[in-house]
Design a protein around this nucleic acid. Structure first.
Lengths: 342, 342
DNA sequence: TTGTATGCGTTATCAG
DNA sequence: CTGATAACGCATACAA
């Protein structure tokens, strides 16, 4: 008993096609009929049926968002909500809908993506993760389906796919230089999964800065841990056990840095007096910690916003060559960093 | 150029309707043709077009999720990602898709909901917020569209709508009793927006416990703040300025409690030695703070999971009367609470 | 400027 | 057990 274009047509004494044209705001429909039709639509409470529309248009005006497989991780890390917020903002502006993936394993994700693409559920995809040899990407590339990666794509794909990312090398270099300028010369590096592109890139930046400063790299000061929070705690134990412990630590993730802070606190090592700690991402939590973290804002919201912009662009004209977009970063000085004193 | 049910039919030498039946796994199709058709589907790489299917079925197998309007807030508070995780899990199990609202103002949300409903974009909705006199709810009720609220519905709607919630009165009462048993007798209450149902209910529980213990209520020990984090800081300033400051604080939100902790720290008031602090929600952050928070786990994931279950149920048979579901809570003792000593 | 006719890819009804 | 055929609601090519 839902009211359709035909009902409107009948009531307005026009053909269904005319109503359709009014909806599309077709320029060569007289103002007079437009108004008439519109008022009837209003009167009858007409709403277009998206499914019918999608069917004939072969287009849904919906963007799919694919979360990483680590079933729990994605939503634990404030990074994801924040990108999502950026995506949401852009999508809303442009009247696009958002369809969220729900799969929890790599295999299921691949299936879901295939389904989304084949069944024409979405017009384009945003991948909120990036791993090497991802079959999802191969699939999308083969189908030439519009998509954008948030993060760093695998080396061999840099030219082939669109992505939005930070310059993590440069970012980490800057953070290291900052500590160097604060007179620190034993600076530790605490990273996440050592095979993640973020970790790799940030480590490179760290090393570059040290080398440029003529400081010899010390592998014993670089540690990696998978666990987002506990990893930070473990790292501190390891690092403080070195013969000459560092006076500063660069942590690749704010949450991990919270673990670091807590372990240091429990060891009675005062931050920033006895130890400087800087991290990356500037998630909300980083300003709520005690003491608040000096961190690098990577503009997560913008990453999402731009990604949404890019998919839409690729949806609209799929022929334009893919491109990588780099989003700026900004140092947020708070209370965990301080000049080194003997 | 996409391959349809007709292509499969032709190739398998059957009618399109037969293919359709095979897809639906219709029992009265011979095993023989079923297999033949299936193999052709495989061979041709056939995927059903959801839009066509939705059109004729008038059903999408998609659940819509409506976030609160406070444009930034939702994703800042770890509560939302976590409910979303629960919803996601259930939806995935049952092969339902998730459609996310993107609107940022109350007005826009109403429009978006109307659109989602009228245009048949989703089969049911989950509202991740609950305010009094919400026009969205009136609309959904009037359309008898399946939906579930996560949170406490307005008094006059308790019987009319389905919802999933905690028993916040009982929860707060328990937290208060816990502090009472730790010999605290000046216990402060720090709440969020005073017109939010959560705040109201938790305050009630707090009062109930105090009264039961024969402790006179002291309005000067109850403060409210809208800002999720700064609110905690302000509250501490106010409360510690009282003639006789409290020895314990009940904070209605973990994030706010972080603000509390930080302000206490800066005042050199040691937690838990000089002040006990307990809060609600048990979001990830609460265990990462220094010291880790004693808090009440409200099973956020389960709230989402059950909500998804309930909408599906209401979608499948809309006739069953609405019901309210209460999810359990659990005290998580960590390091911010301690027996009171003079 | 507007109407007619047809198709989008499925499912469902009705025959056979 | 299977095949024709008519919807589902909309958009567009072609006519008028």
């Amino acid at each position: 008993m839902t009211i359709t274009i035909k009902d409107v047509a009948k009531r307005a004494n026009v053909a269904p096609s005319t109503v359709s044209r009014v909806i599309a705001n077709n320029p060569n429909i007289s103002m007079r009929t437009k108004e008439k039709v519109r008022s009837v639509m209003e009167e009858l409470g007409y709403y277009p049926n998206v499914n019918a529309r999608n069917l004939v248009n072969n287009r849904t005006n919906v963007i799919g968002v694919i979360m990483p497989s680590a079933s729990y991780a994605p939503f634990q890390n404030p990074f994801f909500p924040e990108v999502l917020r950026g995506i949401t903002a852009e999508a809303n502006e442009k009247r696009y809908g958002l369809y969220l993936s729900t799969s929890q394993t790599e295999e299921a994700i691949l299936d879901e993506v295939k389904d989304m693409v084949h069944s024409r559920r979405v017009d384009g995809l945003i991948l909120l993760y990036s791993t090497i040899d991802d079959p999802v990407i191969d699939f999308l590339l083969e189908k030439s389906f519009p998509f954008v990666i948030v993060g760093q794509p695998a080396e061999q794909l840099r030219e082939a796919v669109s992505f939005v990312n930070n310059d993590n090398v440069k970012a980490a270099k800057m953070m290291t230089e900052y500590l160097l300028l604060l007179k620190h010369n034993r600076i530790a590096f605490i990273g996440g999964r050592s095979d993640a592109f973020v970790t790799i890139d940030r480590k490179s930046g760290y090393c570059e800065a040290l080398e440029a400063a003529g400081i010899e790299l010390d592998e014993s000061l670089m540690v990696y841990h998978d666990e987002i929070f506990e990893g930070g705690e473990k790292a501190v134990i390891e690092l403080m056990s070195r013969k000459t412990p560092p006076s500063a630590m660069i942590v690749t993730d704010d949450l991990m840095a919270l673990g670091v802070l807590r372990m240091l606190f429990s060891m009675n090592i005062s931050v920033p007096d006895d130890m400087s700690v800087v991290s990356f991402n500037n998630v909300l939590m980083s300003k709520l910690s005690t003491p608040p973290l000096t961190t690098l804002d990577i503009r997560i919201f913008e990453l999402g916003y731009k990604a949404a912009q890019m998919v839409r662009q690729r949806i609209l004209d799929p022929e334009t060559p893919p491109k990588g977009l780099i989003v700026d970063h900004h140092l947020i000085r708070r209370a965990t960093s301080k000049t080194y004193v003997e």
